[in-house]
C-alpha cells in the first residue's frame, strides 16, 4: 500500500538532487535545471499532502501557482543567460562576475 511517506521520500530526494545540481554546476542553464528540480520536489509534496491529509483542492491550486511562478522564473532566467552569453561569450557562471560590460 502506497502511503504519504513514499511520496515524501520522492520529494525529498528530488529536492536534494536539485540542490546538488545548483551547487555543483558551472553552466548557467544547468543551474536553472536544478531550480526546476527543487520546485518539482516541493510540488510533489504539496499534491501528496493534498491527497492524503487535507482533501479538497487547496494543495493542487498551490501547486498550480508554483508551476506558474517556475515558468516565469525559467523564462526570465534563460533570457538573462542569453544576455550574459551575448556579453561574455560564455555561460560559465565563474566568468560572469561583472555587472558591466
Amino acid at each position: 500500500m502506497i502511503s504519504l511517506n513514499h511520496f515524501l521520500v520522492v520529494g525529498a530526494l528530488l529536492f536534494t538532487l536539485g540542490l546538488v545540481t545548483v551547487a555543483t554546476r558551472r553552466n548557467a542553464v544547468g543551474i536553472l535545471m536544478g531550480v526546476e528540480l527543487i520546485l518539482n520536489g516541493a510540488n510533489v509534496n504539496l499534491v501528496a499532502f493534498n491527497h492524503y491529509v487535507t482533501g479538497g483542492v487547496t494543495g493542487q491550486v498551490f501547486a498550480l501557482f508554483v508551476i506558474v511562478l517556475a515558468t516565469a522564473e525559467a523564462a526570465v532566467g534563460l533570457a538573462i543567460v542569453l544576455s550574459i552569453f551575448q556579453t561574455f561569450k560564455t555561460i560559465d557562471v565563474r566568468h560572469a562576475d561583472l555587472m558591466r560590460e
Binding site: 511517506n5 515524501l8 521520500v9 520529494g11 525529498a12 530526494l13 529536492f15 536534494t16 538532487l17 540542490l19 546538488v20 551547487a23 555543483t24 554546476r25 558551472r26 553552466n27 544547468g30 560564455t90 555561460i91 560559465d92
Partner: peptide, 26 residues
C-alpha cells in the same frame, strides 16, 4: 561548458542534506 565542479563536494552535500529531509519526512 558543463564540467561539474567537485564531484566530491556534490556527494558531500547530498550526504549532508538527504538524511535530514528523509528523517523529517519519515
Amino acid at each position: 561548458s558543463n564540467t561539474s565542479f567537485g564531484r566530491f563536494g556534490g556527494i558531500l552535500m547530498f550526504v549532508a542534506v538527504a538524511p535530514v529531509l528523509l528523517a523529517v519526512a519519515l
